[in-house]
Amino acid sequence: MYYAAVIAILVTMALALIRAFIGPSVYDRMLAANVFGTKTVLLIAVGGYVLSWPAFLDVALLYALTNFVGTIAVMRFFEYSDQASCDVQDGGER
């Protein structure tokens, strides 16, 4: 059962990588990177228990923290860099 969960997580990571490669917009790539990071946390948690790694949950917790901060940072960057061109049109409409 552990291996079924590990294989499912790996398949999901592969699908997220495909979406990150072919993603039409930058938001699709960002979403795929977020999915990949969350699945990395789950893979470390489950696979570390199966392989009986020492202190695997600390690594998983650190990955969860880093993933959220990185996603928010990249999202803010693209939000405001794209808004620079869009904001003029919105302000003109209103």
Binding site: V41, L61, F68, C86
Partner: peptide, 26 residues
């Protein structure tokens, strides 16, 4: 702790990405 953190941050990140895409012209 990991579960609580993922439950708190994952919908937040998803909502923030959807809002960023909406602001960015999608």
């Amino acid at each position: 702790l990991i579960m609580a953190f993922i439950l708190a941050t994952n919908p937040t990140a998803t909502h923030a990405m959807a809002r960023a895409a909406l602001h960015g012209g999608h």
